[in-house]
């Protein structure tokens, strides 16, 4: 079993108006097999947490720690974090010119495993995973995300999740912009991987909708850069009924 541990994390970004603190002391522990949902209103710092774990250069860590089984994640480069088993399904996957999906997937798999995948099995795995996520076979020959619709890009993120088999998956608003059918397809993909029992999941979402398909063990409510409240799945039901008003109206509570 693995543990991803975030302790008292403070993160800021530099903007034209100066340095802006976003995360103001986040503490969170995720173990293999667990699904944690992070919910919260816009601007509460949910996506900042996701990008900081992955190592996006825009986010500056001012304090706190992130460790993976005791290893210091913050001292690792972006690619080292991925090779250590962290995977970020991005909110806005970029289009990468000049690189076909096939080439990209194989190169990434090779980097992650430290050796090239057996060609025969790999091709079969990719085909199967694509079919399950209802991704057109001809996407394999297209450049990474180039000309894909929003929903297609999200499905391709989950395709990578299933093929790369991370120890911890961080899903950054994977559900936003998806219609119900696509949401089901994407959720099934996450559940398939999760059911193998070798992955911990951090599910970041603005809406409760996806929680009908992916059942969280823990729900954390993010407000103004802190965890304002946490609980079990029942907290999500409460949010579904009441919305975020009661959190945004009052001063956030220390986690």
């Amino acid at each position: 079993m693995s543990t991803l541990e975030i302790k008292d994390l403070h993160v800021s970004i530099d903007t034209e108006q100066g340095n802006v603190p976003i995360l103001k002391g986040v503490t969170l522990t995720i173990n293999t097999g667990e699904t944690h949902a992070i919910m919260g209103p816009n601007g509460s710092g949910k996506s900042t947490l996701a990008s900081t774990i992955a190592g996006h250069p825009r986010y500056k860590v001012d304090g706190g720690t992130i460790t993976l089984d005791g290893e210091d994640v913050l001292s690792m480069s972006v690619d080292e974090r991925a090779r250590a088993g962290l995977f970020l399904a991005m909110q806005y996957p970029v289009e990468v010119p000049g690189v076909t999906m096939t080439n990209f997937l194989r190169t990434a798999k090779t980097a992650l495993d430290g050796e090239a995948p057996s060609l025969r099995h790999w091709t079969k795995d990719v085909k199967t995973a694509m079919a399950q996520l209802r991704i057109d076979a001809d996407f394999a020959q297209r450049n990474v995300n180039e000309g894909f619709s929003g929903g297609e890009k999200k499905r391709v993120e989950i395709l990578q999740l299933e093929l790369f088999r991370p120890r911890f998956a961080i899903l950054d608003e994977t559900d936003s912009g998806l219609d119900v059918d696509a949401l089901k397809v994407v959720s099934e993909g996450v559940n398939r991987e999760h059911s193998k029992g070798e992955m911990g999941t951090l599910l970041i979402t603005h809406y409760t909708r996806i929680l009908r398909y992916i059942k969280p063990d823990f729900v954390h409510v993010f407000v103004a850069g802190r965890i304002a409240e946490q609980g079990g799945p029942e907290l999500a039901d409460q949010l579904e009924a009441e919305g975020y008003d009661r959190f945004t109206a009052q001063t956030p509570v220390e986690a």
Binding site: R83, V96, G98, A108, A111, V144
Partner: peptide, 17 residues
Amino acid sequence: FYLMARGIPEVTARRLV
């Protein structure tokens, strides 16, 4: 960032592109 977040080292990422 996208390519590196999938485990691909920087030099390889540029070559790939």
